[in-house]
Simulated scan of single mutants.
Amino acid sequence: MNTKTLFNLGRALLALVGAVGLMSCASPIERRISSNPEIYSKLSDSDKVLINQGRIREGLSKEGVFLAWGRPDNVAAGSQKGVKTEKWTYLGSQPVYTDNWGWGGGWGGYGRYGRGFGYYGAWDPYWGGYGTSVTYIPYKAASVTFRNNRVTEYLRGPQ
């Protein structure tokens, strides 16, 4: 390979890395829109403004909700007065912090019942230790109900 070819390959690689870097800075909404331009182009201007803000409205299509909020965590299909319905549920997670004070037990220590079960304290990461641990608890963050593929009801926030 000559120097000019190597230079052009280097420039192409640099441009590719830059493009990937810019895409990683895009919000999830922007990524869904750029991955689905045909859906976005069919929306009204007012719906495009809502979706760009991550908001939805009654009457919005399923595709519009997907662009604004993403794929649901759960989908339930049903029927109401002979009309097909669908409910999308979105889950969130909330951290719960627990302080560990070193109380724990397990095999291999000395304790109340002799060797084999007892207190481990700070040096046993599985049965005790000092510090704070975090557990994430799921909750229903939002739900959307559709009739005839249009939003008829939506709730956002802890439910």
Rank of each mutant, 00 (worst) to 15 (best):
C25S: 09
L13F: 10
P37A: 09
K42R: 13
S143K: 14
C25P: 00
S46P: 04
R11E: 14
P125C: 01
A141H: 10
Y110N: 11
N74T: 13
S24R: 09
P138K: 07
L22E: 12
N148T: 03
F117H: 13
I56T: 04
I137T: 15
K48Y: 02
K62A: 08
T5P: 00
G92C: 08
Q94Y: 09
Y126R: 10
F7Q: 13
A26I: 04
A76N: 15
L6C: 00
N52E: 14
V75N: 04
Y139K: 00
T98K: 12
L91Y: 13
L6M: 06
F66I: 07
Y119G: 11
G102K: 00
G108T: 00
G129I: 00
R156P: 05
I51D: 01
K62E: 15
T152V: 15
D124S: 13
L22S: 05
D45L: 08
R115H: 14
V144S: 06
M23L: 09
G121L: 03
P138I: 04
T132V: 15
I56R: 02
S41R: 07
R57G: 05
W127E: 12
E58A: 09
S44Y: 05
L67T: 01
V75H: 04
R57Q: 14
V134M: 06
S35H: 11
S46K: 11
Q159K: 07
Q159G: 06
G104M: 00
Y40V: 04
A141D: 13
D73N: 13
R31G: 03
W107M: 07
S93A: 14
I29D: 07
R32G: 02
Q80Y: 14
G70H: 03
G21A: 03
T3F: 10
G18N: 04
W123G: 13
K84C: 07
Y136H: 14
I39K: 07
R57E: 12
S35T: 10
K4M: 08
P72N: 10
Y119Q: 15
W103M: 11
T85C: 00
R147S: 12
D99I: 13
R156M: 12
S143Y: 15
M23D: 11
V65A: 08
K140N: 14
N52D: 13
Y119H: 15
T98F: 07
D45Y: 04
V75L: 06
K140R: 15
Q94I: 11
G92Y: 08
D124T: 04
N36P: 12
S44E: 11
L22A: 11
Y119D: 13
S133P: 06
S143D: 15
A12W: 11
I33D: 10
K81Y: 08
